[in-house]
Design a binder for these strands. Sequence first.
DNA 1: AGATAATCATTGTATGTACAAACAAAATAT
DNA 2: ATATTTTGTTTGTACATACAATGATTATCT
Lengths: 144, 144
Amino acid sequence: MSGPDESFLTNCLFFTANRLSRTITKLAEDAFAPTGLTPMYGYLIRLVVGTPGISQKELAEKLAVTPSTLTRFVDKLELKKLVERKVQGKTVLVYPTAKGEGMVETIKAASRDLRNRYEEVLGKEFADEISRQLVFSSGQLEKQ
Amino acid sequence: MSGPDESFLTNCLFFTANRLSRTITKLAEDAFAPTGLTPMYGYLIRLVVGTPGISQKELAEKLAVTPSTLTRFVDKLELKKLVERKVQGKTVLVYPTAKGEGMVETIKAASRDLRNRYEEVLGKEFADEISRQLVFSSGQLEKQ
DNA sequence: AGATAATCATTGTATGTACAAACAAAATAT
DNA sequence: ATATTTTGTTTGTACATACAATGATTATCT
C-alpha cells in the first residue's frame, strides 16, 4: 500500500528551498515581463537609482551574489544603456542613466504585482512571515 | 543618516527564497562532496533505488524539475553507470545499477551530514518548521 | 482502420550563477 | 622607495535549469 519513503525530499531544507526558488522565480519572471528585465536586474537598477555611484562590491553584497556574477549583471545593463560604470581606482562605481531612472516606476509596479500575486495565494501575513524566516536562515547559514 | 530604503529586497519572497537557495546549495554541495555527486543527483539515485523502474515522468514530478532537466540528469548518471534506462513504449523506466545501489549508504550519510550542519545553526525545530512552510508555499504557488 | 490528438522524451539553445585564475590598484611592511 | 599583501574587478569555464521545437509512441474519435 504505502510506497517507499520519500520524506527525505520534503524534510530537506536544500530541496525545499530550491523548489520554492524555482517556483517563485517563474512567477517573478512573469510579473517582471512588462519591464523587459528579469527581477534581479530590476532590483539592481533600484539599488543603483537609490544610491547613484554605489560600488559593485556593495551591490554584490546587497544582492547576495558573487562579484563575478555582479560583473555580468552590470555588463548586461550597461549594454542596454540602463546604467553606466565609472572606474575609480580599483573600484567601479555604478550610476543610472536617464533611461534607467525612467524605468524605476515600471519596475516598482512589477514588484507590487509580484507581491500581490503571491500574497493572494499565501496570505499577506504568512508571506511576510516566511520572508522574514528566509532572511534569518540565510543570514545564519552565511556566517560560515 | 538612514540610507535609501532597501527593504524591497528582504520583503520580497523571490529575493529571499533565491538567497537561501544559493546559500544552502553551497552547504549541500559541500556535504555531498564525498559522494562525488551534487545533492540533486544523490536524491535522484535514492528515488531510483527506492522504486526500481520508476518512470522519468514520475522522477521529474517528485524532484520538481522539468522533463528536459530530468533527461539531462539521467544522461549524466547513466554515463557514470549509476542508473540504466529501459525504454518501454513512449516512457522510459530507470533502474539502479549495482554500482548505484552501492552508493546509497554514502548518499544517506551525506544527507545526514547536511542536515546536521544546518540544524546546528538553525536549531532542529526551526529547520523542520521552515521546511514544512517551504513545501506548503511551493505547493500553493504551483497550483497555477 | 485511419486520422487526429495527447503524452512522454529528447535536443537545441539560452540564462543565471559559481569558482578559480588573472589582473590592476591600493595599502602595508621593510 | 621598493617589495609584498590585500582588495576589487574581470574573464574563462562549467553546471543547473528552463523553454520551445521536434520526434516517437499511444490513445481517441469517426
